[in-house]
Amino acid sequence: MLQQIFSGSFNFYDVVAYLVAVLLIIFLILPFHEWAHAFVAYLLGDKEAKSRGRLTLNPISHIDMVGALAMIFVGFGWAKPVPINPNNFKKPKLGMALCALAGPVANLLAAYVGLVIYYILAFAFPSFFYLNDIGLMIRSFFVFYASCNVSLAVFNFIPIPPLDGSKILFAFLPYKAIAFMTKYETIFSLALIFLIFTGGLSTVLGFATNGILNFLSDMALSPVRFFAELF
């Protein structure tokens, strides 16, 4: 994102829209993501997150400063991981997979809701988003907001520790493979950080993000268009 800002491909209104969208994600959506992990764990019988004050939407309980800065400057970020004890689940591997799945699903849900709101406004005020700078800025905000949420979901689906995708993958792996990946989690994490900051994942993540974003956009547009035609 910094490269786009400094290259001049973003104008002032785009920068404002991007920053507002990212701050909303840091202070609302990342906590929602972590709350989803904690909530599913609680439903499945693990009270660890609740006992540590993580079953909450309070951003203070979830924000990781490095992850927040990465979200602002790189477009990918993270919050403090929610403590989950799989031994409290009747089926540990399945329980962990469901808890892990809840986080990215929360991001996709947030993106979908944002797109629905955008389309409602677009149908209610069809010319507003295209005829003045404020309208264009608000439109850019929704684009950045939805894109960042989908990017976070796609990023977290990567099956590399410590991302959520690895815990989903663990449900299908033998315990020896899980132990191996867990043992070398630090190495996997460093490799992941390197790929993020060098852009090594940009093409793959961008392709997946665009595909899912287009799908969610169609899913959000259809009901809004249906009701708009009724009235």
Score class of each variant (00 low, 15 high):
residue 50 K to S: 09
residue 177 A to E: 06
residue 125 F to I: 12
residue 202 S to H: 08
residue 44 L to Q: 10
residue 35 W to I: 05
residue 221 L to T: 10
residue 32 F to Q: 11
residue 231 F to K: 15
residue 121 L to Q: 05
residue 115 L to A: 09
residue 183 K to C: 15
residue 106 A to M: 03
residue 129 F to K: 11
residue 130 Y to M: 07
residue 83 P to R: 02
residue 104 P to W: 00
residue 215 F to R: 15
residue 7 S to E: 05
residue 87 N to P: 15
residue 5 I to P: 10
residue 97 A to L: 06
residue 163 L to W: 03
residue 142 F to T: 04
residue 159 P to V: 04
residue 100 A to N: 14
residue 162 P to H: 14
residue 83 P to A: 05
residue 22 V to S: 01
residue 218 D to H: 11
residue 54 R to Q: 09
residue 77 G to F: 00
residue 20 V to T: 08
residue 19 L to G: 03
residue 230 L to C: 04
residue 79 A to L: 14
residue 44 L to Y: 12
residue 227 F to D: 07
residue 163 L to K: 13
residue 194 F to D: 10
residue 180 F to R: 10
residue 2 L to S: 13
residue 167 K to S: 11
residue 11 N to H: 15
residue 87 N to W: 12
residue 41 A to F: 00
residue 130 Y to T: 10
residue 187 I to F: 09
residue 43 L to T: 12
residue 187 I to W: 00
residue 68 A to D: 00
residue 201 L to I: 10
residue 222 S to A: 13
residue 163 L to M: 02
residue 139 R to V: 13
residue 86 P to R: 07
residue 196 I to T: 05
residue 170 F to M: 13
residue 49 A to Y: 00
residue 208 A to K: 01
residue 152 L to F: 05
residue 54 R to C: 04
residue 3 Q to I: 10
residue 4 Q to L: 15
residue 195 L to I: 09
residue 198 T to A: 07
residue 141 F to V: 08
residue 157 F to C: 14
residue 142 F to Q: 00
residue 154 V to C: 07
residue 83 P to H: 03
residue 45 G to M: 12
residue 45 G to Y: 07
residue 168 I to G: 02
residue 171 A to R: 01
residue 139 R to N: 15
residue 112 Y to E: 06
residue 185 E to S: 08
residue 149 N to R: 01
residue 201 L to C: 09
residue 23 L to N: 12
residue 61 S to H: 02
residue 140 S to P: 01
residue 160 I to H: 12
residue 182 T to A: 07
residue 30 L to W: 14
residue 198 T to K: 11
residue 98 L to R: 00
residue 62 H to C: 15
residue 219 M to T: 15
residue 83 P to V: 10
residue 27 F to P: 14
residue 117 I to L: 11
residue 7 S to I: 03
residue 186 T to S: 04
residue 180 F to H: 06
residue 197 F to I: 12
residue 207 F to A: 06
residue 123 F to K: 03
residue 219 M to I: 11
residue 158 I to Y: 01
residue 165 G to W: 08
residue 204 V to M: 14
residue 202 S to P: 06
residue 171 A to E: 10
residue 181 M to C: 08
residue 166 S to Y: 00
residue 73 F to H: 15
residue 32 F to Y: 03
residue 91 K to H: 03
residue 33 H to C: 01
